[in-house]
Amino acid sequence: MADKCDLCLLGLIVLSSLLTGTSGVDDAHVFISSGVNVSLSCNNDLSDCKSTSWTYSRYSSVKLIDRGIKNKDTERHERLSLESDCSLNIKNVTEEDYGYYSCSQYVNGAQQGPGAYVYLHVLHVSSSSSSSSSSSSSSSSSSQTEISPGRSVTLSCQLYSYIPCDCMSPCDYLFSSEGLELLWVNQTGVDLKTDSRYQILSSSYHCMITLTTTLLNEDANREWRCQLTRRDQLKTSVTYTVKYSDPADPASETAGLLYRVIVSIVEIAVFAAPTVILLQIICARRAGRKDSKRPEEIEMPTILQ
């Protein structure tokens, strides 16, 4: 156990040098939000990418690109591509894409250049809402539409990070030693911790910060932003926009009621019209029969003797 922790400690020291840029190898930490595209750079010393390989690691290693050819056995192969400079492009990044990426180029068994090693960290927001009678949950990187005023909503903003060490939480290390911080802010960038309407809870162990509040009518189209900073410098952010599925609009409700009343009147008129016409025909026929009787057939009143 001691040897394992010593190895982890050594790895963390190396990781610290990567973050601060003091390593002799070209390593990088990329912070990105889910739902966008990202390009991971490779030290390309060749005229083409036929000798370029990209490997992904997180508890196990997977070859994504092997000598310029994409591995189609991976679930995300359709979102991967090589750019002209041999960088790895990932479309529509998800929280499952976080991890360790390495690029290498070999010609005749000899490595060309120092290679490139990239830690990809993904910021993602999920949401859940509930009311007194029911509850629902969903995941989103930008907005939530199945909500309405009066419901309580909780937004969970998490940074997905990977460090190859079992001795401590990757988040604890990153947040304590590298000055990382997660914040919920409003549209003008004001920290929502200053507003008593919001309940903000954070956990450096899980790289997470949550926001809980009860939605108001005026929250329609309001934006809340979860942002990640490193030593007070913005690295990435995710915006959550409140979009109601059935906004409370009095004018709209009045128009809807008027429309339903008109439809009801039309339906009644359509149903009653044939009956009225039939009654008119019957009355007309009876009146015609009376008019067609001969004078002698008309009963004379009895004269009292």
Rank of each mutant, 00 (worst) to 15 (best):
Pro295Glu: 15
Thr210Val: 12
Ser237Ala: 10
Asp166Phe: 11
Tyr119Thr: 01
Val125Thr: 06
Leu40Phe: 05
Tyr259Gly: 12
Asn71Val: 02
Val185Ala: 04
Thr212Asn: 13
Tyr56Phe: 15
Pro114Ser: 08
His206Lys: 11
Gln227Gly: 05
Ile65Ala: 00
Cys8Met: 03
Val36Arg: 05
Glu78Met: 09
Thr74Lys: 08
Cys171Asp: 09
Thr20Met: 07
Arg197Thr: 02
Tyr162Pro: 04
Gln111Leu: 03
Asn43Tyr: 11
His77Gly: 09
His29Gln: 11
Val238Gln: 07
Arg76Ile: 08
Val263Tyr: 15
Ser47Thr: 07
Thr20Phe: 04
Cys283Ile: 15
Arg197Gln: 10
Tyr106His: 15
Val25Glu: 14
Ser134Tyr: 11
Phe175Met: 04
Ile303Trp: 13
Asp172Val: 06
Ile303Leu: 13
Ser169Val: 04
Gln112Leu: 01
Asp195Pro: 01
Lys235Phe: 04
Tyr160Asn: 02
Ile13Asn: 13
Cys49Phe: 09
Thr236Tyr: 02
Ile303Lys: 13
Asn43Pro: 10
Ile265Glu: 08
Arg79Gln: 13
Val238Tyr: 00
Cys5Tyr: 13
Leu82Lys: 04
Tyr106Phe: 14
Ser139Thr: 15
Phe271Thr: 05
Arg222Glu: 07
Gly179Pro: 07
Ser128Tyr: 03
Thr194Met: 07
Ser135Asn: 10
Leu18Ser: 15
Leu228Arg: 00
Phe271Ile: 12
Thr254Ser: 04
Arg289Phe: 11
Cys283Lys: 12
Asn43Lys: 06
Ser135Glu: 13
Asp232Asn: 15
Leu192Ala: 05
Leu258His: 14
Ser161Glu: 03
Leu192Ser: 04
Leu258Phe: 14
Leu159Gln: 01
Glu178Ala: 08
Tyr117Ser: 06
